[in-house]
Amino acid sequence: MAPKLAVLAVLASLLGAVSCEFSISIYAGYGFPPPNPNQPFKLPPASPPKNPRPDLKVGYYAANKCPQAEEIVKRAVEEATPGEKAGLIRLFFHDCFVQGCDASVLLEGPDTERTAFPNLSLRGFNIIEKAKAALEVECKGIVSCADIVAFAGRDASCSLSDGKINYQVPAGRYDGNVSRANDTFLNLPPPFGDLKLITDMFAAKGLDQTDMLVLSGGHSTGRSGCGSFANSFSNRLQADNSSTAMNRTLADQLNTTCTADSVNVPLDYKTPYALDHQYYKNVQEHNVLFTSDAVLLESPETKVLVDSFARDPFFLSDIIPIGRNPWYDAFAKAMVKMGNWEVKNSTVGEIRQFCGKVNDKKTY
C-alpha cells in the first residue's frame, strides 16, 4: 500500500474515536482542499464520452443471452435493506463518475477506488456480489458487473420511490480493469462545493446543470457521516448568516447528535427511507446537510427547478392525485443519461467472473 494510503487507512480506523472538534478533512488529507479564491479546486478534464452513442440496448440480455438477468438482479435488490438500497443508488453514481460506468468502483485491492475516503462508506457491494453469483450459475460469463450495478440502481430507485421511478436500462456494458484511488477525488463532486464547482464537475461528465440538480435529489434517502458536513474546513453546524446556512433548528439538533465524525445521520430528516421530492422542500427550508445542496437556491435557474420539484400534486377528495411531480420522471431520464458515460466495450473491457477482481486470463 502506498505510504499516503497507509496513513489514510489508519486515520479511517480512528474516525470513530475522533470528535467533531478535531475533525479530519478527508479531502485536504488527500491533497484536495476545499475551493477558495486563492486556490481553486482542481477539476477533472472535460471531455465527451469515448463513444457519445454507446452500443447499449434495452433488453440486451433478452432472448438467447440471459433472459432472466434483470429479474435475478431485481430479486437480490428486493432482499436488501432500505439502507442498502440507498447505497446501491449511490454506488451507481460513484461508479459512473470515475472511469465511467464500468464497475471500477467494485475492484478490491490497494490504491483502488474503494480505498478512497469518499468510497469508504459505500454500501451494497454484497447485493451486487449476490446477484453476480446467481447470474454466473444461470448464464456464466454473460452479464457484466457494470450492468448489474446499473440494474440495481434502477431497482433500488423503484423500490424506495414506491414505484414512482421506474425505467428501462440500456445494457451491454463491459467491465473495466483500471481502478485508482486518486481518480476519486478528481471526479466526485465534494459536499462542500459551490454551485459553479458542482455544475462544472457534472459538465465534465456530459451532464448539464439540470441533470445535476435532478440527480442531487438522490440525497432524499440514505445517510451521511457527520464528518462530511461538520469539519474544520466546512462546518455547517456553526452559526452562519450566509445564504447557504443550515436552518438553526436542524443545526442545533445535529450539534447534539454529531458526537464524532463517524456518527451517521439521515440525509433527509423527514422521509429518510423514501426516494421522493421531499429533498427539494428541505432545500427550500435550508434543512440540508451539504453546502452542495444548499447552493441550489443561489441562481434563478436552479431555484425555479427546486421550487417546481418541491410542489406536491393536487388531490381530489384527499385521496386521488391529479398530476404528477415532474422530478420522478426527470430522475429516471438523468440516471439513463449518466449510465451512458464512458461505457467500455469488449476491446477495452471484459465480463468479470467476480466483481471484486479482474479475470485470471488463464482460467476465465
Results as ranks from 00 to 15, higher is better:
residue 64 N to S: 13
residue 64 N to L: 08
residue 65 K to F: 08
residue 67 P to N: 12
residue 67 P to M: 07
residue 69 A to W: 11
residue 70 E to F: 00
residue 71 E to Q: 12
residue 72 I to T: 13
residue 75 R to A: 07
residue 75 R to P: 02
residue 75 R to Y: 04
residue 76 A to N: 13
residue 76 A to P: 11
residue 77 V to T: 05
residue 78 E to W: 06
residue 78 E to Y: 08
residue 79 E to I: 07
residue 83 G to I: 01
residue 85 K to N: 03
residue 85 K to F: 04
residue 86 A to T: 15
residue 88 L to H: 13
residue 89 I to K: 11
residue 91 L to M: 12
residue 91 L to D: 08
residue 92 F to W: 13
residue 92 F to M: 11
residue 94 H to E: 07
residue 94 H to K: 10
residue 95 D to W: 12
residue 95 D to K: 14
residue 100 G to H: 06
residue 100 G to I: 09
residue 101 C to G: 02
residue 102 D to R: 14
residue 104 S to A: 11
residue 104 S to D: 06
residue 105 V to D: 00
residue 105 V to K: 01
residue 106 L to D: 08
residue 106 L to C: 14
residue 107 L to M: 06
residue 108 E to W: 09
residue 110 P to A: 01
residue 110 P to D: 05
residue 111 D to I: 07
residue 112 T to V: 08
residue 113 E to S: 12
residue 113 E to A: 12
residue 114 R to L: 13
residue 116 A to Y: 01
residue 117 F to G: 01
residue 118 P to C: 06
residue 118 P to Q: 08
residue 121 S to L: 04
residue 121 S to W: 04
residue 123 R to M: 10
residue 125 F to L: 07
residue 126 N to E: 14
residue 126 N to V: 11
residue 127 I to E: 09
residue 128 I to N: 02
residue 128 I to D: 01
residue 129 E to K: 15
residue 130 K to V: 09
residue 130 K to W: 09
residue 132 K to H: 15
residue 133 A to I: 09
residue 135 L to D: 12
residue 136 E to M: 07
residue 136 E to A: 04
residue 137 V to L: 01
residue 137 V to C: 00
residue 137 V to W: 00
residue 139 C to I: 08
residue 140 K to P: 04
residue 140 K to A: 09
residue 141 G to F: 13
residue 141 G to R: 15
residue 142 I to S: 04
residue 144 S to P: 06
residue 145 C to E: 03
residue 148 I to Q: 05
residue 148 I to P: 04
residue 149 V to G: 00
residue 150 A to F: 12
residue 150 A to D: 06
residue 150 A to I: 06
residue 150 A to E: 05
residue 151 F to P: 02
residue 153 G to P: 11
residue 154 R to Y: 07
residue 156 A to D: 09
residue 157 S to P: 02
residue 157 S to L: 01
residue 158 C to M: 11
residue 159 S to W: 07
residue 160 L to T: 14
residue 161 S to H: 07
residue 164 K to Q: 15
residue 165 I to Y: 02
residue 165 I to F: 03
residue 166 N to R: 15
residue 173 R to N: 01
residue 175 D to S: 03
residue 176 G to A: 10
residue 178 V to P: 01
residue 180 R to M: 06
